[in-house]
């Protein structure tokens, strides 16, 4: 009697367990297919970039300015140069301010003001890029009365600052207090310690933060639409409208011309190669550096 009951119970257990195992298997399968579904577009984007881009990529593309509609050939050399100019301006403004703010937060920011700045930096990080464009338009373009590379640079700098600030803070805080104390013990003044000891120790991490911010803004288009505006000729003057690679890709992509579409793909390939190279270089540097594991 009791034996039969045990048998029955164990059979019931087994069937439940089978059911539960089936669910478990199903969940594993679902999670696995989610990964495949997510990796699919990634593969498709890169695949198409290479497939469509490489055919249109040639020396003319990298050395010439755009040709008028209908003429074959031409390239995006001025847009690549323009991007370099705008990103240069953005870095000159954004990197020192970002690192300075990060150092302030890490070294002096253990108070209300520090918390406020930290919170504000996070808020700034979430502001849509198109809104940053409106602000740069207001503070630079309206004053200068025309579109300019400077306005584009300011817009991108505003986007770089919060990223660099938080990365710098994180990295500087990782430097052991003992290292600072050793410097103080030798009588080195505080500012000197911060610059030559603390920042130097955290350097590889700080560079990682800077490069990630750089890679993030390098592909930004929205804030450049009404700041740098675009240009079909060479321009090295930061007070003049300037072409930029992402901007050129956008204009060509929504145009109705096949030739321009092909150039847009080539431009996108150049852009993604630049970004992926800088991000992977950062991974490599950060991986070797002393402060890895926090990027």
């Amino acid at each position: 009697m009791s034996r039969a009951m045990t048998l029955k119970a164990s059979q019931a257990d087994l069937s439940v367990s089978l059911w539960r195992r089936a669910i478990d298997l199903l969940a594993t399968f679902a999670a696995g297919s989610a990964v495949v579904l997510v990796l699919l577009p990634l593969g498709a984007v890169f695949g198409y970039l290479v497939y469509k881009g490489i055919g249109s990529l040639n020396w003319a593309f990298l050395s010439q300015t755009p040709k008028p509609v209908g003429e074959a050939g031409g390239g995006m050399a001025n847009a690549i140069a323009g991007s370099a100019l705008i990103l240069g301006i953005a870095s000159v403004i954004g990197v020192p301010v970002g690192i300075g703010a990060g150092v302030y937060l890490a070294e002096y920011g253990r108070n209300r003001l520090g918390d406020l700045i930290r919170f504000t930096a996070d808020v700034l990080n979430g502001v849509p890029s198109i809104v940053i464009g409106i602000v740069a338009y207001g503070i630079v373009v309206l004053r200068q009365r025309h579109f300019s590379a400077l306005a584009g640079g300011v817009a991108l700098a505003i986007m770089m600052i919060p990223t660099i600030t938080r990365a710098t803070e994180e990295m500087v805080l990782l430097v052991p207090t003992a290292v600072r104390e050793a410097a103080y013990g030798l009588g080195v003044s505080r500012w000197r310690t911060t610059i030559s000891i603390t920042l130097r120790t955290a350097m590889s991490g700080v560079i990682t933060g800077v490069m990630l911010a750089f890679a993030r803004v390098a592909g930004e288009t929205a804030p450049l639409l009404f700041t740098a505006f675009g240009n079909t000729y060479w321009n090295w003057n930061m007070n003049q409208p300037t072409a930029a690679l992402p901007l050129q890709i956008f204009v060509y992509a929504i145009s109705p011309f096949d030739e321009w579409h092909r150039q847009a793909w080539a431009g996108a390939l150049v852009l993604i190669v630049l970004i992926v190279v800088s991000v992977s270089a950062v991974r490599l540097v950060a991986g070797r550096g002393m402060l890895k594991g926090s990027s």
């Binding site: 301010v97 300075g100 302030y104 700045i117 502001v127 809104v131 409106i134 602000v135 505080r190």
Partner: peptide, 28 residues
């Protein structure tokens, strides 16, 4: 003096972050 100047410079960078958000709100 150098220490204090350095701290002020860093503080100025930090305050720039606040200023930027203020500018965004003001402009908009």
């Amino acid at each position: 003096w150098a220490d204090r100047t350095f701290q002020f410079a860093m503080l100025a960078c930090g305050l720039t972050v606040l200023l930027l958000v203020y500018l965004i709100i003001y402009e908009l």
